[in-house]
């Protein structure tokens, strides 16, 4: 049971990166359906750099610190670049957000296949990523449940909490939310809508990029898989599930992790049942969507201008 929970937290953090990044993006009014592609690209860039670094110094002689920090930074930058493409199309060229997002998903997954081949393994680096905190082994179930994770898990939690505070408690967060809710109003209030949308979306995409890396290094212990895209779609669902709040996202992501892993931990079930259980995260999202829209709380609705481009001259 403890093992199941701990594994769910690990899986959940991939979702959390994705959903925190997407929440930031959506709060600024961008419905970025390119998230799966961005997460894939983030993973690919990070792993490619890891591979280059490992080849340069020899996989057995890598510096643990560099082996961890370097790919994280590169994944972040890779995600940001994808976000930049997205913003250039939607903000500067006023392209349709859904179409742009779907193009990015295709681009990201395709790019990933081009950069990394399935035979690559990053286990030499993953062991540093998954290194638990000290004392984790001595503290029984507590250590297992709270201290046994690698750096990416704690980083995800920190980013989610910081994002949540920025969004709800700071001037910058107020401005971001205003841009997503009513860009014309924000513009009239002297907020640079274009700049806010670019920066927020790029940072959000960067965070999502780390999510891809987290999936490879933390969940799969360094073996390459092309299933990041599926994680990305679930992360988008998670944004709706958490009603656009990164702090709820922490619990939501762990719940999604549990639902995602459930089939592997339940014994004696058929393949059909496995598939059914794997559907659960989507089913839960639909239920949450129904509940939140039925209650009609305006705070729980998506940002009013989500998915809409903003032209100042348009009345």
């Amino acid at each position: 049971m403890i093992e199941f929970l701990a594994q769910s937290v690990r899986t959940g953090m991939t979702f959390l990166y994705g959903s925190t990044g997407e929440t930031l993006t959506e709060k600024s009014g961008h419905l970025n359906l390119g998230l799966p592609g961005i997460m894939s690209a983030g993973a690919a860039f990070g792993c490619a750099v890891e591979y280059a670094y490992g080849s340069a110094v020899g996989k057995l002689y890598v510096n643990p610190f560099i082996a961890v920090i370097l790919p994280i930074v590169v994944s972040f930058i890779g995600g940001m670049l994808m976000g930049l493409i997205y913003c250039f199309f939607t903000v500067t060229l006023h392209a349709n957000q859904n179409v742009t997002g779907l193009i990015l998903t295709t681009l990201g997954t395709g790019l990933t296949g081009y950069i990394i081949s399935k035979t690559h393994s990053f286990a030499f680096a993953a062991k540093y990523f998954t290194k638990p905190l000290p004392f984790a082994k001595d503290l029984g179930w507590f250590g297992k449940l709270f201290l046994s994770y690698g750096i990416l898990v704690y980083l995800a939690l920190a980013i989610a909490i910081i994002s949540s505070i920025i969004l709800s408690k700071t001037r910058v967060g107020l401005n971001i939310r205003a841009v997503g809710e009513n860009p014309a109003t924000a513009d009239a209030a002297g907020i640079n809508v274009t700049r806010y949308r670019y920066i927020t979306t790029m940072i959000g995409s960067g965070i999502a990029g780390i999510g891809g890396l987290c999936y490879i290094m933390d969940n799969l212990f360094g073996s390459w898989e092309y299933t990041i895209e599926a994680m990305g779609w679930l992360a988008i669902a998670l944004v709706i599930f958490t009603v656009w709040k990164p702090n709820i996202g922490i619990f939501g992501s762990i719940l999604f992790g549990m639902l995602y892993n459930a089939s592997a931990y339940i014994k004696n079930i058929s393949f059909a049942q496995t598939d059914l259980i794997e559907m659960l995260p989507y089913a839960v999202t639909i239920i949450v969507l129904i509940i939140t829209s039925a209650r009609k709380r305006r705070e729980n609705q998506p940002p009013a201008h989500l998915g809409l481009s903003y032209f100042r001259e348009d009345r």
Binding site: T170, N175, A178, E181, N182, A186, A189, G190, R298, A304
Partner: peptide, 27 residues
């Protein structure tokens, strides 16, 4: 004060009032 109000619906009055202001004071 424009004829069509420029306000963010889900914000409180206070939030709308300080929107876009760069006050030196603590938020």
């Amino acid at each position: 004060i424009h004829q069509h109000f420029k306000l963010v619906d889900v914000f409180t009055a206070a939030e709308n009032i300080i929107l876009g202001l760069n006050e030196k004071r603590k938020y």
